[in-house]
């Protein structure tokens, strides 16, 4: 299968008044054509930063570095800003977490949709319009023609997110990054948007990076996933592997937080992970999960953790062996 995106040892640093924030640390993953890869983790673990680093849209002063950051064989660390702008919105599109504020209030939906294709393709405005109508219908918006003349404030959040998806598809990208596309929406609309994304991805054979903190969503849509904690990947593998056989205590903790049909009995208490994600500012040593980990030992503060590969594409980050992880978890 053709690889679309290859990320190896990605770091993102952000200077803050309190010190240097290491928002993303040594993150590696890849996305193949037509494949959905999920980045999962709690709020603040660096998912958005990872995505923004790939798009080269980091906040001012944010710095990224990586051993490999290549998109369709092109080294994104080396190409200049205007070449990167040629890729953005064209070959690589992003859908954001905040549909309410992600559209420009001063321009019509039509204007903003057409703009995306006029920037990259030599098409007439009429052709751009047709494309916009076609995609608005594709994302399930009725009366697409008349929507073009509407302004963002006239649309609901769900509709705006559909518009954002249509906008991402304008140039037929080979990779879509969806950063928590449903977090801001009603539960009923969440499911619609997600299945829409999945079906579009199948239809257009795009790679999809689905960022979420909802493991339920991951289990339904992702082929592979990377669990992130405090800027690092702590476990990765195919969705099946990770769900059937989670290794890292953090992954296990996350799994305990979601009800499983057939397994979770009515009235049974769901798990939760005590404590909060530490902010990775300044010098960092040892395992970042140790303060919340039920299996932590004094070693965890002293020894650097490494991502240990147990089979191709399957890895976890812990000092303990997979078996020891399981034993410790069941004891706790």
């Amino acid at each position: 299968m053709k690889s679309v995106l290859e990320v190896k040892s990605l770091y993102v640093d952000l200077p803050l008044p309190a010190g240097m924030l290491h928002a993303v640390r040594n993150v590696s993953f890849h996305v193949n054509q037509g494949e959905t890869v999920s980045l999962v983790g709690e709020s603040g673990c660096g998912k958005s930063m990872t995505a923004l680093a790939v798009m080269n849209l980091l906040p001012r002063k944010g710095v990224r570095r990586a051993e490999v950051l290549s998109f369709e064989g092109r080294d994104l660390m080396k190409i200049d800003d205007s070449k990167m702008a040629d890729i953005r919105g064209n070959k690589m599109a992003m859908i954001f977490q905040e549909p309410m504020t992600s559209l420009d209030p001063c321009y019509t939906i039509g204007n903003q949709l057409e703009e995306a294709i006029l920037q990259h393709r030599k098409v007439s405005t009429a052709e751009a319009r047709d494309r916009a109508v076609f995609l608005l219908e594709k994302v399930g918006i009725t009366a697409a023609e008349s929507r073009l003349k509407q302004y963002p404030h006239q649309l609901s959040g769900g509709l705006r997110q559909r518009v954002m998806i249509a906008m991402g598809l304008m140039c037929g990208p080979s990779l879509i990054i969806a950063d928590e596309p449903t977090t801001a929406l009603d539960v009923t609309i969440q499911a619609q948007i997600l299945s829409l994304l999945a079906s579009l991805q199948q239809e257009f054979e795009m790679g999809l990076i689905l960022i979420t903190h909802d493991l339920g969503v991951v289990s339904r849509t992702a082929d592979r996933l990377a669990v992130m904690y405090c800027g690092e990947v702590v476990e990765t593998g195919t969705t099946e592997e990770v769900f059937d056989n989670p290794i890292h205590p953090y992954t296990r903790g996350l799994m305990d937080c979601i009800p499983v049909p057939g397994k979770t009995k009515p009235g049974e208490k769901l798990g939760s992970i005590p404590g909060m994600v530490p902010t990775p500012i300044g010098e960092l040593t040892g395992c970042s999960f140790r303060n919340r980990c039920p299996s932590a030992s004094p070693d965890c503060a002293r020894t650097e953790t490494r991502l240990i590969e147990i089979s191709p594409g399957r890895a976890y980050r812990c000092l303990l062996s997979p078996e020891a992880c399981a034993v410790e978890w069941n004891r706790a």
Binding site: R60, A85, F96, D104, P105, C106, Q119, M167
Partner: peptide, 27 residues
Amino acid sequence: LSSDHIRTARAKGLRWGKVLFKHALRN
């Protein structure tokens, strides 16, 4: 300039001038 819709405009691959004058200054 630090608002979400400017980020969207940049994510579309628009040139800096267009982002600045069409989207930012207008608002």
